[in-house]
C-alpha cells in the first residue's frame, strides 16, 4: 500500500499545485503514460482543469451574488486562487468554503469593493440556514408551564438555522438587487448605511430580516445565553420586545439556566 500511497500523494500534489508547469506536475508525470497526442503532463492537466472546475463551480453555487457582482471571469479566478490554498477536509462539498469571506478580505484585486467580504458572509449564513435542521416554533404551552419562581432563569434561543450579521454596508440591499427575480433598479448607494441582519429559515422559507437596534441587542444577548433576570434589567421595553421577537419567529426555544443561588 506504500507504493499506492506515494503515487496518490504525488498525483494530488500535481493537481493542487499552483503552477501548472511546476515540479509537482513533473514528478507525478513520471508515473503516467503518454498517449497519442497527449504527453504525461497533459494527462495530469486534464485533472487539474477538472478539479479547478469542480471547486469553482461549487463556490459559485454557494456564493452566487459574489459571483454576479464580480462577473464570472473574476470570480472563477479568485475562487481558483482560494481552492489552491484551502484544502477540503470533507467529502461533502457543502462544508467547503466557510473561510471564503476572510480570503476575499485579503485579496488585493478585490480591495476596491470593501463590502464584498460581508456579502460573502451573508451568503455563507444563507447557505448554512438553507441546510440547517428542520425546527418547530417556540413551544408556548411548555413555556407557560415554567413556574413563576424559575422565570428569571429562562434562557431563550434563536432558531438553529439563524445567524446574526452586522455590516457597515447595506449588504442585504446589495443581495436583494442581485437576485435573478429582482426587477427594480440595480443601483445601491453604500451611504444608505449599516445593516444588522438575522439570516434564518422559517419552515422551508428562507429569510433575511433587517433588525432594529433593540432587536439586535436582545438577539445578540440570546446567542450568548444571557438569562431573563439579566435581560429584564437591561431592556426597559422587554414587555413588548420579547413578544415581538417571538412573534417574528426569531426565538425558537428555551431552557432553564443552572440556579445561581
Amino acid at each position: 500500500m506504500q507504493r499506492l500511497n506515494q503515487l496518490q500523494r504525488r498525483v494530488r500534489e500535481a493537481i493542487m499545485a499552483a503552477d501548472a508547469d511546476g515540479t509537482e506536475v513533473c514528478a507525478a508525470s513520471e508515473t503516467v503514460n503518454a498517449t497519442h497526442g497527449l504527453s504525461s503532463p497533459e494527462h495530469l492537466r486534464i485533472y487539474r482543469r477538472a478539479v479547478t472546475g469542480t471547486f469553482t463551480r461549487a463556490l459559485g453555487q454557494l456564493y452566487p451574488v459574489t459571483m454576479r457582482l464580480l462577473g464570472r471571469e473574476f470570480f472563477d479566478g479568485m475562487a481558483s486562487r482560494y481552492m489552491r490554498i484551502t484544502p477540503s477536509h470533507s467529502p461533502d462539498l457543502a462544508e467547503y468554503g466557510s473561510s471564503f469571506a476572510e480570503f476575499i478580505e485579503g485579496f488585493e484585486p478585490a480591495a476596491g469593493l470593501p463590502y464584498l467580504p460581508d456579502v460573502a458572509r451573508l451568503e455563507w449564513a444563507w447557505h448554512s440556514a438553507f441546510s440547517a435542521a428542520d425546527e418547530t416554533a417556540l413551544n408556548i404551552d411548555g413555556l407557560g408551564e415554567v413556574p413563576e419562581s424559575d422565570r428569571d432563569r429562562l434562557v431563550f434561543a434563536l432558531p438553529a438555522s439563524a445567524a446574526l450579521l452586522a455590516s457597515q454596508y447595506p449588504v442585504h440591499r446589495i443581495w436583494q438587487v442581485n437576485q435573478d427575480e429582482w426587477t427594480g433598479p440595480e443601483e445601491v448607494d453604500l451611504d444608505e448605511g449599516a445593516a444588522r441582519l438575522i439570516v434564518w429559515r422559517r419552515g422551508y422559507d428562507m429569510r433575511i430580516d433587517p433588525l432594529q437596534d433593540n432587536e439586535w441587542s436582545l438577539l445578540s444577548d440570546l446567542t450568548g445565553n444571557v438569562p431573563m433576570r439579566v435581560l429584564s434589567n437591561k431592556f426597559p421595553d422587554m414587555a413588548t420586545l420579547l413578544p415581538h421577537c417571538v412573534e417574528h419567529g426569531w426565538i425558537a426555544g428555551f431552557q432553564l439556566a443552572e440556579s445561581t443561588d
Binding site: 472546475g53 457582482l69 471571469e73 451611504d191
Partner: peptide
C-alpha cells in the same frame, strides 16, 4: 467532469466586470 482553463496564478490580471459597477458610495 468540470472543464475549465488551467491558468497559472501569475497570469491573473482580471478586473471585476459584474454588477459591482452599480454599487456606489463615498466609502469606495
Amino acid at each position: 467532469g468540470q472543464a475549465t482553463a488551467d491558468n497559472n496564478a501569475e497570469e491573473w490580471i482580471y478586473v471585476p466586470a459584474g454588477t459591482c459597477g452599480k454599487i456606489a458610495g463615498s466609502s469606495l
